[in-house]
């Protein structure tokens, strides 16, 4: 490999207008390759994106979980069996060996965009 960095092409998918995602709620997004991602907006208007699939049940439901905080960590609780996932890292608070994938997310022209590396 050469010394120059490998340029990673990130594809961005339009999610929805920022206003369509209320604070402390989530939505599910279907990426072109069939991947499902949950996008959340916290009380401070920060946006987070993690895999929508709950690793414990296999069901694509995390976007329907309750958003809040444990300690100072922003979390979503799985609606299936209530395990908490750190929205920043995807790591499960109850079992650090389990985590969900995280995705870059940004706002452009009042529209939420979701990145896929």
């Amino acid at each position: 490999m050469t010394a120059e960095a490998v340029l990673i092409e990130t594809t961005w998918t339009e999610v929805c207008p920022v206003d369509a995602l209320a604070r402390e709620q989530g939505v599910a997004v279907l990426l072109p390759d069939g991947t499902q991602v949950a996008v959340f907006r916290t009380h401070d208007d920060a946006l987070y994106a993690v895999s929508n699939v709950d690793p414990f049940s296999g069901a694509a439901v995390l976007s329907r979980g309750i958003v809040g905080d444990i300690g100072a960590t922003p979390v979503v609780a799985s609606p299936m069996h209530k395990q908490h996932f750190d929205l920043r890292t995807g790591v499960c608070l109850e079992d650090a060996d389990v985590s969900v994938a995280t995705y870059p997310v940004c706002v452009c022209d009042a529209t939420i965009l979701l990145g896929q590396p």
Binding site: T13, L21, V27, A28, V29, L30, Q36, G58, A59
Partner: peptide, 12 residues
């Protein structure tokens, strides 16, 4: 099911 594809059911 999906905010960006309202008519599509969850494929899983």
């Amino acid at each position: 099911s999906f905010v960006n594809a309202p008519g599509t059911p969850d494929p899983t």
